[in-house]
Design a binder for these strands. Structure first.
Length: 708
RNA sequence: GGACCCGUGGUUCAGUGGUAGAACGCUUCAUUCACAUUGAAGAGGUCAGAGGUUCAAAUCCUCUCGGGUCCACCA
């Protein structure tokens, strides 16, 4: 054995051996009880980051259960990541001086498809370098034909059940990316804006958006506001930049008499709360901003100006006409931004597909309340409930091409929608054959929200449903986890599965924290502080990186990337390696027939150490069963180094006999097995060198009832 | 507006009502030894602050201060 453990010579070879031996497949323990974790699908076009490295938690659980004879499946997959990927691709197009509008839908799709396929596979090999024992033979992709079929089918069922509906509603629309977003995808930011006090005939009202005034279909006051009582129900004639206009005054509870002047303009086509007010009062919608972000013909001479240009122009002209009372330039408000391009989102009225979430959310809340799904750490349950109890309908249409096109056709004759499970319909119910397919695609989360069922069904592994653990970053609890629970229960219910414990997609949710930079700041490309975990694997070895991420970090807590900790982990791996070297060396001492210098009390001493190992097995097993990975890692670290190496090995030197050495080898084997889920490579390498067995990863977990 | 997390030696963080812990750093010593990626010893903490519950609180409760996050969003 080399004096220093060199991961570079070892890790790649061992991983290849594992993979070619079929050890990652559940067939390795085919008679065992099923145990399953589904890897959160990785972005097909993405690169490895620390979010992926944290999946080491899953590998620990998987290896632990595999060694305990479970028929263990860890299923990998990739996600087409609709908006993310199209956004990246369009940036590339832009560099070439082109835009998505230069291509037909099919052309653009094919180009992105080609681009993604060229980049696919990268992340898979990176996950291999971390030692993840994923069953690659079952890998799935969200755009696999049979996955898409399931997604279509779910949509059709939701439509048939009346849970999916088409409605013209205000959506968060990015006029730069040309698509709408769900509420979750909106990033809110505090801004300082101008609040304009505008004259509307005899009234003065405050607004941040004077350019939408052409879309006003009423002004509103609070019903109890005495100042304006006499105007309610009247139609005012007002002076505007486009000449005289008439506008109705309504009373609505939603108006805050304390805000501004207590009068508010109602623009149902461009403001979420005005949209609601408009519905209550049957106001008409007048859209004055187009999907290109420019003013349309309702804006008269301002037509063609962008929102920002129009605001300046209109304010200037209103000031000239004396229509502005005053401007508060230090008004603090929050604006919704596109999470991709950070431009201000425009609320625009658009026909979209929505899922009615109320009915889906109810059982999803119940299963967590009744602890049929357990969330760790438990504090995240509150966030889960908060999200589901206040859930709004989910806009699942995206105006992009990269993704699963919605299987809905509109009849040009009767204007009804025909929804199929993917097949092109021959004709509408009314008999017309003039059907045009919706151009939109599904929100990526609609397909990934069906991932546990879809992957297990299409690989003929439904016996693993529900999965045992869903482990992911806490940041996507509402985006992904909650939606998987809702859709999972719905789908299984439709499949005729009666018991709720068999409908849920997984039994336990484990959430890990974020890995920040060494100063505790979030890693981001724009800050330039992103560290690639693979560079650390090169430098420290996969085992050390894995151990450093687990040791000293409580489940669900964020951690700062720590180089001292990585160093410590590497030293630990090296220490273990040298303990192996000592035992190899000890064999020679025995062979040379040297006599021990201390013989009294040797049996008691020997039994003491065997008992110590047994205690450790019990504790580590218990910690792993409770998902207390950091406790287990700390106990293993302390025992291995400060008990086994510092005391046991020092104490055996004068007591070296064939019997004590055999016992030490047994105890060392136990330590290796307990450490294997955490640091799989070095433990496997030592295990094989000592010919303890064919492979540690499929050998049995030590039992703690074994008598010495 | 609603909620969650964090605050513990110089630093990064564990801590499960019962004597304040680890790693790194620091100080001193050792070193023909499996390992200098080593060993032994040591210094260093009013556990953010205040109050409460308890025989006993870093831990449970309330409030305050500081840092961070999520959700909802009003002209």
């Amino acid at each position: 054995m080399d004096k220093v453990y060199n991961h570079k010579n070892i890790e790649e070879r061992i991983y290849r051996e594992w993979e070619t031996s079929g050890y990652f497949r559940p067939e390795i323990n085919s008679k065992g009880k099923p145990y399953c974790i589904i890897l959160p699908p990785t972005n097909a076009n993405g690169a490895l980051h620390f979010g992926h490295a944290m999946y080491v938690v899953e590998d620990i659980l998987i290896r632990f259960h595999r060694m305990r004879n479970f028929s263990t499946l860890w299923l990998p997959g990739t996600d087409h990541a609709g908006i993310e990927t199209q956004f990246v691709f369009e940036k590339k197009l832009l560099e070439q001086g082109k835009s998505r509008l230069d291509f037909k839908r099919e052309e653009l799709y094919e180009m992105i498809n080609k681009y993604v396929n060229e980049n696919r596979g990268g992340i898979e090999s990176q996950l291999r370098r971390l030692g993840f024992s994923l069953d690659w033979s079952r890998e799935k992709y969200t755009l696999d034909g049979n996955i898409v079929e399931i997604v279509y089918d779910t949509f059709k069922k939701l439509f048939t059940d009346g849970l999916v509906y088409r409605a013209k509603r205000l959506v968060n629309y990015c006029t730069f990316d040309g698509t709408s977003f769900s509420d979750l995808e909106v990033v809110h930011e505090d801004r300082t804006s101008s609040l304009y006090y505008i004259k509307y005939g005899p009234l003065i009202l405050a607004t941040t958006r004077p350019e939408t005034k052409f879309g006003d279909t009423a002004v509103a006051v609070h019903p109890g506001d005495k100042r304006y009582k006499k105007y309610v129900g009247q139609e005012l004639e007002i002076e505007t930049v486009l000449g005289k206009a008439k506008i109705k005054v309504i009373a609505d509870e939603s108006v805050d008499p304390e805000f501004g002047t207590g009068v508010v303009k109602i623009t149902p086509a461009h403001d979420f709360s005005d949209f609601e007010t408009g519905k209550r009062h049957n106001l008409s919608m007048k859209q004055v901003i187009g999907f290109d972000g420019k003013m349309n013909y309702f804006a008269g001479k301002f037509e063609g100006l962008s929102v920002r240009e129009a605001r300046h122009a209109i304010v200037k002209e209103m000031q000239a006409k004396g229509l502005i009372e005053k401007i508060d330039e230090n008004y603090k408000n929050r604006v919704g931004l596109c999470y991709k391009c950070k431009n201000v989102l425009e609320p625009l009225p658009l026909e979209q597909w929505f899922i009615n979430m109320q009915l889906l959310a109810k059982p999803a809340i119940e299963v967590v309340k009744s602890r049929q799904i357990k969330i760790y750490p438990k504090s995240f349950e509150k966030r889960y409930f908060q999200f589901l109890e206040n859930i709004r309908d989910w806009n699942i249409s995206r105006q992009i091409v990269w993704g699963i096109q919605i299987p809905a056709w509109k009849c040009e004759k009767c204007h009804e929608w025909v929804v199929t499970n993917g097949k092109i319909p021959q004709k509408c119910k009314c008999g017309s054959e003039n059907l045009i397919r919706d151009q939109d695609t599904f929100d990526t989360w609609f397909s990934s929200g069906q991932w546990p069922y879809a992957t297990l069904e299409t690989t003929n592994n439904l016996k693993f449903y529900p999965a045992d653990v869903m482990e992911t970053g806490y940041d996507i609890l509402p985006w992904w986890v909650a939606r998987m629970v809702m859709l999972g229960i719905y789908i299984q219910n439709k499949q005729g599965v009666k018991e709720i414990e068999n409908q849920i997609p997984f039994k336990n949710v484990l959430l890990h924290g974020l890995v920040n930079d060494p100063y505790g700041k979030k890693m981001s490309k724009s800050k330039g502080n992103v560290v690639n975990p693979l560079d650390l694997v090169d430098q420290y070895g996969a085992d050390a990186v894995r151990f450093a991420l687990i040791y000293g970090n409580a489940t669900g807590n964020d951690q700062a990337l720590s180089y001292p900790k990585l160093d410590a982990a590497r030293k630990f791996v090296n220490k273990l390696w040298n303990m192996g070297r000592f035992i190899e060396f000890a064999d020679k001492i025995i062979d040379e027939g040297k006599k021990p210098t201390r013989e009294s009390g040797i049996d008691e001493w020997n039994n003491y150490w065997c008992k110590k190992s047994q205690e450790l097995v019990k504790k580590v097993t218990n910690d792993l069963e409770k998902y207390n990975f950091n406790y287990a890692a700390e106990k293993l670290y302390n025992f291995t180094w400060h008990e086994f190496a510092d005391k046991y090995i020092e104490d055996i030197k004068p007591r070296m006999t064939p019997k004590t050495l055999e016992a030490m080898k047994d105890n060392f084997k136990i330590i290796l097995k307990l450490l294997h889920p955490f640091i799989p490579f070095v433990t496997e390498e030592i295990y094989q060198r000592f010919k303890f067995g064919k492979s540690i990863m499929v050998d049995k977990w030590p039992s703690f009832v074994k008598s010495i």
